[in-house]
């Protein structure tokens, strides 16, 4: 392997520490998902075996808890994705539009959970699930005069990503009362396409990201057995066909670093990851490293970003890398709770 195709852990650590501190103004469109960025950085540093050096651990946790919302009236409990709506006045209080976001809640839950209001989260999770089984990201619940709760329809989009978030949250808080598992399973199976990949919603195109979300959700819900042997066989074929050198997300699309994780982890859950060509996969992912500033990107010679840095490291970790911790491939992070 050429010299520049060696993992550069030091550079990536530096990059992720920089992300944890401050990111430039052109990242403004990440303003509502800063918690997700923190998750990428922290989990990335953990993969790089550097968590103990994170000197500000307690402060990071305190910042994350400042995003917690406990609101049993509007049933919007969980974690916000950012502090955009936080003010001194509404600190630790409910306020209009101060709602949790399901991805925020998922990425917040990584300490010992001692300050997490799990019951409130489960109660709020329940209302995010629509009658067809899929989950919304965020919405306010209106209580009708007769006492019935009615989710406001215009709240947010709904798709496979949020089923995965709901499954992760329930798994982590060890409380599944917020999820109707049968309905979620039904929705997932309906999203299996003629190509035998899963789409974001029924009848849409099969996609590597949604296939990971679908399979990981089934695994977390204990429902992998809902797939027939034939389906499983064809899904494995579709997933393996995504490898070109690195992995692509759909047929005839370019490869992209993040699919080394999404597709790789789905294969791992199905217990067939060893069919992957490790050398070619490694070579591709490593070629997307920024050898000057650190971080990884989706393609060779493009700007690195926190998502692809974390996904690239995760993808490498699936192949058991000496410099990297082994990833907890269902929850998309290794189990951090034991460390705090």
């Amino acid at each position: 392997m050429p010299v520049n195709l060696i993992l550069k852990p030091k550079l990536h650590k530096k990059y992720l520490y920089r992300c944890l501190q401050c990111i430039p103004s052109h990242f403004a469109s990440y303003d509502t998902t800063r918690l997700v960025l923190a998750f990428f950085a922290i989990s990335g540093l953990d993969l790089l075996k550097d968590l103990n050096n994170l000197k500000k651990q307690q402060k990071i946790i305190d910042w994350i808890y400042s995003l917690q919302v406990v609101d049993d009236k509007e049933l919007v409990s969980g974690f916000q994705g950012s502090t955009t709506l936080n003010t001194i006045e509404n600190r630790n209080q409910t306020a209009p539009y101060k709602w949790c976001h399901i991805a925020g809640t998922y990425t917040a839950l990584w300490d010992d959970l001692s300050r997490v209001n799990k019951e409130a989260i489960a109660r709020s999770l329940k209302v995010l699930q629509l009658p067809n089984g899929v989950f919304c990201a965020s919405l306010k619940v209106l209580q009708l005069p007769n006492g019935v709760f009615c989710a406001s329809k215009d709240g947010s989009e709904s798709d496979m990503r949020f089923i995965y978030c709901a499954a992760c949250i329930s798994y982590i808080i060890d409380d599944w009362s917020g999820v109707n598992i049968e309905k979620a399973t039904d929705y997932i199976l309906k999203s299996l396409t003629y190509e035998f990949g899963f789409a974001q919603a029924p009848q849409l195109e099969a996609h590597g990201g949604s296939t990971y979300c679908a399979i990981a959700s089934l695994a977390l819900m204990g429902k992998l057995s809902a797939l027939t042997e034939t389906q499983r066989k064809h899904i494995i074929r579709w997933l393996l066909n995504r490898q070109k050198d690195g992995f692509q997300g759909r047929p005839n699309k370019p490869v992209d670093t993040c699919y080394s994780f999404w597709v790789g982890a789905a294969l791992k859950i199905l217990d067939v990851f060893d069919f992957v060509d490790f050398d070619q996969n490694k070579t591709y992912v490593l070629s997307t490293q920024d050898n000057l500033y650190g971080g990884l990107s989706k393609w060779v010679d493009t700007t690195s970003d926190p998502l692809h840095t974390y996904m690239g490291l995760s993808g490498l970790s699936l192949m058991k890398y000496d410099e990297l911790e082994e990833i907890h491939f269902r929850r998309n992070t290794i189990d951090l709770s034991i460390r705090f």
Binding site: S25, R34, L35, T83, T87
Partner: peptide, 29 residues
């Protein structure tokens, strides 16, 4: 915006961004 005493993943907001969102929080209240 109340970003706490020790914020993480701070975004170097532009002046325009801070101004607009200060007023957005104002009308939301």
């Amino acid at each position: 915006q109340d970003d706490g005493e020790e914020p993480v993943v701070t975004i170097a907001y532009s002046k325009e961004f801070t101004d607009v969102y200060d007023y957005f929080r104002g009308i939301l209240k």
